Simulated scan of single mutants.
Amino acid sequence: MRIAITGSTGLIGTALVRSLRTDGHDVVRLVRRAPSAADEVRWDPGRQEIDTAGLAGCEAVVHLAGAGVGDHRWTAAYKQEIRDSRVLGTRTLATALAAMDTPPRVLVCGSAIGYYGDTGDRRTDESAPAGHGFLPEVCVAWEDAAKPAQDAGIRTVFARTGLVVARAGGAWGRLFPVFRLGLGGRLGDGSQYWSFISLEDHIAALRHLLDTGDLAGPVNLTAPEPVTNREVTAVMGKVLNRPTLFPVPAPVLRIALGEFAGDVLGSQRVIPRRLLDSGFTFRHPRIMEAVRAAAA
Rank of each mutant, 00 (worst) to 15 (best):
R29W: 04
R160M: 01
V227G: 07
A67Q: 13
R18E: 15
H132I: 10
L221G: 02
A128I: 09
V219F: 01
T102V: 15
R33T: 14
R86V: 05
H63K: 01
R83K: 12
V252N: 08
L16H: 01
P35V: 04
V27R: 00
T92F: 01
G57P: 08
E259D: 15
E259S: 11
V164A: 07
P226Y: 02
G46V: 03
Q268S: 11
R47Y: 04
F134M: 03
D84F: 03
A99S: 14
T52A: 14
P104V: 00
H25N: 12
Y78R: 09
V248H: 03
E49Y: 11
E126N: 03
P243I: 02
Q150V: 15
L253N: 10
G188Y: 09
R174N: 14
V31L: 05
R33C: 12
E81V: 13
S267F: 07
T244Q: 02
L97I: 11
D214Y: 12
D26H: 14
D214A: 12
T92N: 10
T22W: 06
K79V: 04
V219G: 03
T161I: 14
S8M: 08
K238V: 04
D263P: 04
V232W: 13
L93R: 02
R160I: 00
E81L: 14
H284T: 13
A290Y: 12
A293Q: 14
H202Y: 13
L11C: 11
L181G: 09
A65P: 00
Q48M: 14
R2L: 04
T281E: 15
Y193C: 03
F179T: 03
H284G: 10
L215E: 03
P104S: 09
V106W: 04
A168W: 05
F134K: 06
S278L: 10
D151T: 14
R174V: 10
A15W: 01
T233W: 07
G133C: 05
L209S: 00
I154V: 11
F282M: 01
G89M: 01
V219T: 09
E126T: 02
L181M: 14
T212W: 03
R21W: 06
A60H: 05
T244D: 07
D84G: 04
G54I: 00
Y116W: 07
V239L: 11
A130R: 08
